[in-house]
Amino acid sequence: MTAPYEIARPDDTEQPALLPWSADPYVHALRTGRGPLFLRRTDGWLLPLDVERWCARPDDADLTVLDRCEGAVLDVGCGPGRLVAELAARGRTALGIDVSEAAVAHTARLGGRALRRSVFQPLPSERRWGTALLMDGNVGIGGDPPALLDRVSRLLAPGGLVIAETVPADVDERVQVHVTDGRGTVGVPFPWARLGTPALLRYARALRLDVEGQWAAGGRCFVALRSRSTSSSAEPPNRTAVISSQRARKPSADSPETSR
């Protein structure tokens, strides 16, 4: 069975000249697989970023998320691609999206499919994804959690899941940050948000997303939200979608594995 989406080549003319996560210490960290790396607020506060974990194989906490995925999976802000690659190895339909060219290339090297694209740009198979992932703080993308959750919910098939990782504290913060290695090299500033579970649930209720579950693993917190179903034909939970050509397909001009 082939994937239920068509990969479109991103239009580079739509990409700003400077993007966060693209021309900053993040690229170097992905290439080396290690930090230090931080998000720095304008007041100087530093949030450590766990590059080593992102570049490793999925850990036990990650697996609690992957085991809950349903249907075709879209990993929003996939980073170096550990989750997309693991889903591919399981024979699941999965696509990562990320604004970082280095992250997309890293995902492809691991055997996953990825596309250089913002979640707010047009994406393949909108309203057909079974699960959308917002891991590793990616619920903060864009600095506007309600707008992000609304956009992601509109990418799902009726009754689809959003699985988000939250801060293990009661936090609802919107800030300007930049990526830094803590040694003087910094990236461009961009809006970001940090959400604990209570704040995420407030926004979910306003968007009519139902709470499917909440859990903690490895010191990390997760929430599963289900979009309202308007169809009785939604795919049942945890159905495996096998892609016979997941690893063997030859890269084409429209494939995210094509060199850039």
Score class of each variant (00 low, 15 high):
137 G>A: 06
84 V>G: 00
181 D>M: 06
244 S>K: 15
82 R>S: 02
103 A>K: 00
131 T>I: 07
10 P>W: 07
251 P>L: 06
86 E>T: 04
17 A>F: 11
104 V>H: 02
228 R>F: 14
167 V>T: 12
245 S>D: 14
252 S>Y: 12
130 G>C: 09
153 S>V: 08
93 T>G: 13
79 G>S: 08
191 P>V: 06
50 D>S: 09
96 G>K: 00
68 R>S: 11
55 C>P: 00
77 G>H: 00
28 H>I: 15
70 E>R: 11
123 L>H: 01
117 R>Y: 08
160 G>C: 11
217 A>C: 09
150 D>M: 13
248 A>N: 15
39 L>A: 02
181 D>Q: 07
166 T>S: 08
11 D>K: 07
246 Q>A: 13
67 D>L: 12
187 G>F: 01
44 G>V: 04
105 A>E: 03
162 V>P: 01
243 I>C: 10
250 K>C: 12
74 L>H: 02
150 D>P: 10
234 A>P: 08
198 P>K: 10
43 D>K: 09
113 R>H: 11
257 E>T: 15
232 S>L: 13
41 R>L: 11
91 G>C: 09
54 W>C: 06
237 P>C: 04
212 E>P: 07
220 R>Q: 07
157 A>K: 04
113 R>D: 10
201 L>M: 11
224 A>T: 04
212 E>R: 11
111 G>P: 00
58 P>H: 08
201 L>Q: 04
67 D>I: 08
94 A>C: 09
122 P>A: 10
163 I>P: 00
43 D>L: 09
177 V>C: 05
43 D>N: 14
39 L>H: 03
67 D>T: 11
253 A>M: 15
12 D>E: 14
232 S>T: 13
105 A>W: 02
20 P>I: 01
190 F>L: 03
131 T>Q: 05
244 S>E: 13
220 R>A: 02
29 A>L: 08
123 L>Y: 04
9 R>Q: 13
102 A>H: 03
171 V>R: 08
205 R>C: 10
225 L>H: 01
171 V>W: 07
35 G>K: 01
150 D>G: 14
61 A>H: 01
165 E>T: 10
146 P>I: 11
224 A>I: 03
41 R>A: 14
6 E>H: 15
168 P>G: 06
2 T>P: 14
102 A>C: 13
177 V>E: 02
144 D>M: 12
109 R>I: 10
256 P>N: 10
116 R>C: 07
58 P>F: 02
96 G>A: 07
5 Y>E: 05
